[in-house]
Amino acid sequence: MASQGTKRSYEQMETDGERQNATEIRASVGKMIGGIGRFYIQMCTELKLSDYEGRLIQNSLTIERMVLSAFDERRNKYLEEHPSAGKDPKKTGGPIYRRVNGKWMRELILYDKEEIRRIWRQANNGDDATAGLTHMMIWHSNLNDATYQRTRALVRTGMDPRMCSLMQGSTLPRRSGAAGAAVKGVGTMVMELVRMIKRGINDRNFWRGENGRKTRIAYERMCNILKGKFQTAAQKAMMDQVRESRNPGNAEFEDLTFLARSALILRGSVAHKSCLPACVYGPAVASGYDFEREGYSLVGIDPFRLLQNSQVYSLIRPNENPAHKSQLVWMACHSAAFEDLRVLSFIKGTKVLPRGKLSTRGVQIASNENMETMESSTLELRSRYWAIRTRSGGNTNQQRASAGQISIQPTFSVQRNLPFDRTTIMAAFNGNTEGRTSDMRTEIIRMMESARPEDVSFQGRGVFELSDEKAASPIVPSFDMSNEGSYFFGDNAEEYDN
Rank of each mutant, 00 (worst) to 15 (best):
C223T: 06
G404A: 11
G362T: 03
T151E: 03
Q12N: 10
F479M: 14
S467N: 15
K184T: 05
R389I: 00
V270Q: 12
T257Q: 06
G393D: 01
Q459E: 11
A427R: 07
C275K: 00
W139D: 07
A286C: 12
S50C: 14
L108N: 08
R65Y: 02
G212K: 09
V285P: 00
I347A: 09
I444W: 07
M374N: 05
V100H: 03
L68T: 09
D145T: 02
G485L: 00
F253D: 02
M159F: 00
G126V: 14
N144Y: 12
A22K: 06
M137G: 04
M447W: 06
I406D: 00
R152L: 07
V363M: 07
M32N: 04
G349S: 12
P95A: 09
S377D: 02
G431K: 01
A336F: 06
R199H: 10
P410G: 05
N224T: 05
E24P: 01
I63C: 13
P477I: 00
N321M: 03
N319K: 13
A471N: 04
R305C: 08
G177A: 14
S438E: 01
S457N: 07
F258W: 05
D255F: 11
S326E: 01
G431R: 02
V270M: 08
G200E: 13
E80N: 09
L381C: 14
V352R: 00
G177N: 06
D491N: 13
S367V: 07
F429K: 00
S367L: 09
G187W: 07
G93E: 12
G37C: 13
S376M: 15
A27P: 04
Q308M: 15
T423K: 04
L306C: 01
N309Q: 13
I406N: 08
T147W: 07
S457E: 08
M239R: 02
S438H: 07
N432L: 08
A182K: 03
S170Y: 08
Q58F: 03
F488W: 10
M43F: 14
V155Q: 07
T350H: 05
A271I: 00
T442Y: 01
Q231W: 08
Y296S: 14
D127S: 12
L298R: 09
A27G: 07
R342Q: 05
N202R: 07
R98G: 07
R174T: 08
Q42T: 14
P89Y: 05
R267P: 04
L381W: 04
I265Q: 01
L418F: 07
N101M: 01
D72I: 03
I36W: 12
T232Q: 12
T373L: 14
T390C: 04
D112A: 15
Q20H: 09
E252K: 13
T437C: 09
E46W: 05
V299Q: 11
K348L: 05
F230D: 03
G169W: 06
P322K: 08
I96S: 00
I109Q: 04
L358V: 09
I36Y: 06
N21H: 13
T151N: 06
S84A: 15
Q327K: 10
V194D: 10
R150M: 11
E339S: 00
H135I: 06
C223L: 11
E469D: 11
K87H: 06
P354F: 12
C223P: 04
A129Q: 08
V352A: 07
I425E: 08
G460R: 15
P354E: 08
A182D: 00
G169R: 05
V456F: 11
N124S: 07
A471D: 03
L306H: 02
G490V: 09
L259T: 06
N59L: 01
V463L: 10
S367R: 06
N124L: 05
M163F: 15
F489R: 01
G169S: 14
N319A: 03
K214M: 15
L358H: 10
G126H: 11
S486W: 09
N59K: 12
E80P: 00
G394K: 04
N125C: 15
M137I: 14
T378E: 02
R65C: 03
T437P: 04
D88F: 03
